[in-house]
Amino acid sequence: MPLAFRNRCGHFILICLGVLLLLLPGYAYEELSDESLKALPRPNEEFDIHNGALLSPILQTRIPGTPGHDAVLQHLVNYIRTTLPKWEIDLQNSTSQTPVSNGEDVPFVNVIAYRDPPGASVGDVERLTLVAHYDSKLTPEGFIGAIDSAAPCAMIMHAMRSIDIALDKKWADMQARGMDPSFEEERGIQVLFLDGEEAFDHWTDDDSLYGARSLAETWDQEMNPAMSTFKTKLSSISLFVLLDLLGSKSPSIMSFYQTTHWAYQNMGALEQRLRSLGQFKSSSSDPWFIDTSKDSRQVVAMGGIQDDHIPFLARGVDVLHIIDFAPFKGFPPVWHTMDDDAEHLDMDTVEDWTVLVTAFAAEWMELEGFIGEAENAKARRDAELEAEAIRLNKKTEL
Score class of each variant (00 low, 15 high):
Ile323Cys: 08
Ser96Glu: 11
Trp171Met: 06
Ile147Glu: 11
Gly268Arg: 06
Pro140Gln: 02
Leu130His: 01
His133Leu: 09
Ala199Gln: 06
Asn93Lys: 14
Ala216His: 11
Glu217Leu: 10
Ser255Glu: 11
Pro251Glu: 08
Leu76Asn: 06
Trp262Ile: 13
Ala146Cys: 08
Ser236Trp: 01
Leu54Val: 02
Met155Val: 15
Leu3Gln: 14
Gly196Val: 07
Ser121Leu: 14
Asp340Cys: 13
Phe289Asn: 05
Trp335Tyr: 14
Asp207Tyr: 06
Asp105Glu: 15
Asp90Thr: 04
His75Arg: 04
Leu76Pro: 10
Leu32Glu: 01
Trp335Lys: 04
Leu20Met: 13
Ser121Thr: 03
Gly52Pro: 08
Val109Met: 03
Leu209Ala: 07
Ala342Gly: 15
Tyr114Ser: 14
Arg273Gly: 12
Asp34Cys: 05
Val319Trp: 05
Leu37Gly: 07
Phe5His: 11
Thr396Trp: 09
Glu30Asp: 11
Ile310Ala: 06
Val111Lys: 02
Arg315Cys: 11
Ala301Val: 02
Gln221Ile: 14
Lys137Ala: 09
Leu22Asp: 05
Tyr29Met: 01
Ala326Lys: 12
Val317Ile: 12
Ile15Phe: 14
Ser162Glu: 09
Glu141Thr: 12
Lys169Cys: 01
Ala379Thr: 10
Glu35Cys: 04
Trp288Glu: 07
Trp87Pro: 07
Leu40Asp: 10
Pro181Glu: 04
Thr354Ile: 09
Gly196Asp: 12
Asn51Pro: 00
Tyr27Met: 15
Leu313Phe: 12
Ala28Ile: 00
Glu141Trp: 03
Met179Pro: 00
Val109Cys: 05
Gly145Lys: 03
Leu40Gly: 09
His75Lys: 13
Asp48Gln: 05
Ser136Phe: 00
Thr354Lys: 11
His11Lys: 12
Glu271Ser: 12
Asp48Gly: 11
Arg273Lys: 15
Asp346Cys: 01
Glu185Lys: 07
Pro140Cys: 03
Leu274Arg: 01
Arg273Trp: 10
Ala176Lys: 13
Leu234Val: 10
Gly18Cys: 14
Phe193Met: 14
Arg213Ser: 14
Pro85Thr: 06
Ile237Met: 10
Ile112Tyr: 05
Leu54Ile: 14
Asp291Thr: 02
Asp382Cys: 03
Gly278Lys: 10
Pro311Leu: 01
Phe312Trp: 02
Tyr210Asn: 05
Phe325Asn: 14
Pro107Met: 08
Met365Arg: 03
Tyr264Ile: 10
Glu186Leu: 05
Asn102Arg: 13
Arg81Ala: 09
Ala379Gln: 13
Ala314Glu: 10
Val355Ser: 01
Ile147Trp: 00
Phe183Trp: 04
Asp48Trp: 01
Trp171Pro: 12
His309Arg: 07
Phe331Arg: 13
His344Trp: 04
Ala263Asp: 13
Val77Asn: 04
Leu73Met: 11
Thr98Leu: 12
Ser248Asn: 12
Thr139Ala: 10
Thr232Pro: 07
Gly123Val: 11
Leu32Gly: 01
His158Ala: 08
Gly278Ala: 10
Lys395Glu: 12
Gly103Lys: 08
Lys329His: 13
Phe370Leu: 00
Pro327Tyr: 05
Met157Phe: 06
Lys294Met: 08
Met179His: 09
Phe328Val: 14
Lys38Arg: 15
Ser94Thr: 15
Thr229Arg: 15
Pro287Arg: 00
